[in-house]
Computed example of a mutant assay.
Amino acid sequence: MFNYVILGSEDEIYKYAFNDLNGLDNVIYVSGCKPSKCTLKGFLYRTHFRPELNEKIRIPGKSIWNHFYFKDTLSKNNKYCFIFLANFAMFAKQSRYHQYLRRKYPDCKIVLFLTDIFARQTELFTHEKWKIEKERALYDLIISYDKSDCQKYGFTYHHTVFSSNFILPDLNVEESDVYFVAKYKGRLQRVIELYDLLSSFGLRCDFYIYKCPSDMKVERPGISYIEKPISYAENLVRTIKTKFLLEIMQNNADGYTYRTWEAIAFKKKLITNNKSIIDAPFYNPKLIYVVNDYCDLKDGIAAFIQDNNTVDFNYTKEMSPVALLEFIDSKFR
């Protein structure tokens, strides 16, 4: 077993996704690489990495930050495994942090865990697409949640992770029948079609679409177009207060999203266009409805929403980040 240092993200979603690791004596989760804004260190860091400056002239000396990224409080009896999420890796490459870790921990393993498709990854200042050979040279193992990327690039597959035990804030949120939230990403037509169908059954839809162009908006009573994303904590509260979750996957994505894990964690039925989910070990047609043909859904969804089956996927242990660490450990034995 390794000492695991997860170099994560400031994004709130990962705080909840990796929460099961809290309290483990061989794990440190680092929630992003930026020091607090309220400190002099934070001000200096942000100035040093400020895109407007670095896009004009690359400011040298970023390696001075490498020993600040995490405080090592772990037992020295174990070897180290560093797991990078993409956001942290994007900054770390600017300070040659991977090379720093290799020098300080000669026996360590370094892993990249991709929770988005590889084609969407870009460099911090140049915005160039990541180059696969450069990434392979940095890591002992690259894990992706996307099966298509694994086939294309030779990555190792493991689904994204999600925790089941955490405390949520007490928010005043109305109950709904169907909940959906997503960035626009060109999928509005499908959302509207499903909204109209679900509403025709008398279901109360609670839909949020982020950053939708004004000329693309289609007004509906249960759809809110937002310019600022709702907090992930609020998203989870709204998940708890609904009966069904709707998931519309972006084009070319092929994996299990956080919407899927939320359905499992909070025991909600899922309506999704992710066709690959029928091969998932937790798939149950009574609990997951796969949208195949948008023109011929009425009968199938009617039966699905009217069925009052008890919702329990029995998969919370397998989707936990603890299972991810066990998987990584097995790869280096």
Rank of each mutant, 00 (worst) to 15 (best):
I13S: 13
Y16M: 03
F18V: 12
D20A: 14
N22L: 11
V27F: 04
I28Y: 10
I28Q: 09
Y29G: 06
V30Y: 07
S36N: 06
K37V: 14
T39Q: 02
G42E: 04
Y45F: 08
T47E: 15
E52S: 15
E55S: 15
G61V: 02
I64T: 09
N66S: 11
F68T: 12
F70E: 02
K71V: 07
D72C: 03
N77L: 10
K79W: 01
Y80P: 04
F84E: 01
S95V: 09
Q99I: 08
Y100L: 05
R102E: 08
R102V: 00
R103L: 07
R103T: 09
Y105F: 05
P106M: 07
C108P: 04
D116G: 03
D116T: 15
I117P: 08
I117L: 10
I117C: 15
A119I: 14
R120V: 14
L124R: 05
F125I: 01
H127D: 14
K129D: 13
K131T: 11
E133Y: 14
K134A: 15
A137S: 11
A137L: 11
L138P: 02
Y139N: 07
L141P: 00
L141W: 01
Q151P: 03
T156N: 05
T160H: 08
N165L: 02
N165D: 08
L171Y: 08
N172I: 11
N172M: 04
V178M: 02
Y179K: 06
F180K: 04
V181S: 00
Y184H: 07
G186F: 06
V191R: 04
E193P: 08
L198P: 01
C205V: 09
D206Y: 05
Y208Q: 04
I209V: 13
Y210H: 11
D215W: 05
M216E: 15
M216L: 07
R220N: 00
R220V: 03
R220M: 01
S224P: 08
E227D: 15
K228G: 03
N235I: 14
N235M: 14
R238V: 07
K241V: 02
K243I: 13
M249K: 05
D254H: 13
D254E: 14
G255N: 05
E262Q: 07
E262M: 01
E262K: 10
I264G: 01
A265P: 01
T272S: 03
K275M: 13
I277P: 00
I278F: 10
I278H: 11
F282H: 00
Y283K: 00
N292C: 09
D293Q: 09
C295T: 13
L297M: 09
K298A: 04
G300V: 03
A303N: 15
Q306L: 13
N308T: 13
T310D: 15
V311H: 03
D312G: 02
T316F: 00
K331V: 05
